[in-house]
Amino acid sequence: MIRIRRVTLPPDLAGQLRVRTDKLHGDKADCSAARAAWKSAKATRTQLTRHLTGMAAGIRRCMYCGDGLGTDIDHFEPLAEAPLRAFDWPNHLLACSYCNSHQKRELFPRDEDGRPLLVDPFTEDPCAHLELVLSTGIYEALTPRGDITIKVFGLNRADLARGRASAFIRTVCMLRDRARLLQFSGTEEAGEVAASLLDQPFADVLYAMLRYRDLPGAEQVLRGRDVVDALADPALHFGP
């Protein structure tokens, strides 16, 4: 899971969401009514999906696991708990069907004061709560919220851990290839490698590597000084 930057919606779409939200409030909609309104708003959902897709890491990747294709708009705070937030833009994330329907579902743990315990990648950096062990692809919790987030989203599923570990090896090799291309062959093919690095699944691997770059022991964790130096390339960094 990586930090995602939310864009400002165009005025016409933002207006549609306000109108629909006002109607839910006026009707004092419950979960059933909110679901019906959401299901009937096909054109609005299509527009929202387009904007969420543009914000997702890689090529339309799930904002939770980073692997599956983002096919669903997930309500971070579920409609069962917050029906009036059905059309609330800050409550929308792009998820794969597995994370949305089999992992998170309607789960939304809260602490004793009612504050959400799941990490929202739009409002905070997941790295404050989760640490990715690159060699194994396993997430370790840094906080109690991180532990709950790992469990609810199933971030350490065997297929995901294996995929991240493989992505780490692949990323190391691609970084070395890009460095050699920049040194001996010009920038065109090197640019293709950079684009491929940013488009591949498991963007959290590159994201974690960029964070490790400035930490003690980076050369050992990242498998060499050449990899550490390659990560300094601005072309490989995520957006602001």
Rank of each mutant, 00 (worst) to 15 (best):
Q183P: 01
Q183C: 08
Q183V: 12
Q183L: 12
F184E: 15
F184Q: 14
F184D: 15
F184C: 09
F184L: 14
S185H: 08
S185M: 03
G186E: 11
G186M: 04
G186P: 09
E188V: 14
E188P: 04
E188Q: 15
E189C: 03
E189L: 13
A190F: 05
G191P: 11
E192L: 13
E192Q: 15
A194I: 06
A195R: 14
A195I: 01
A195M: 07
A195V: 04
S196N: 01
S196K: 00
L197F: 03
L197S: 03
L197N: 06
L198H: 08
L198Q: 08
D199L: 07
D199K: 13
Q200C: 05
Q200H: 07
Q200D: 12
Q200L: 05
Q200N: 07
Q200V: 04
P201G: 11
F202K: 07
F202P: 08
A203I: 07
A203Q: 15
D204C: 10
V205N: 01
L206I: 01
Y207L: 04
A208G: 04
M209W: 00
L210R: 11
L210Q: 13
L210F: 04
R211M: 09
R211L: 10
R211G: 06
Y212H: 09
Y212P: 02
Y212V: 12
Y212L: 10
Y212R: 14
Y212E: 15
Y212D: 13
R213D: 11
D214N: 11
L215V: 00
L215F: 01
L215I: 01
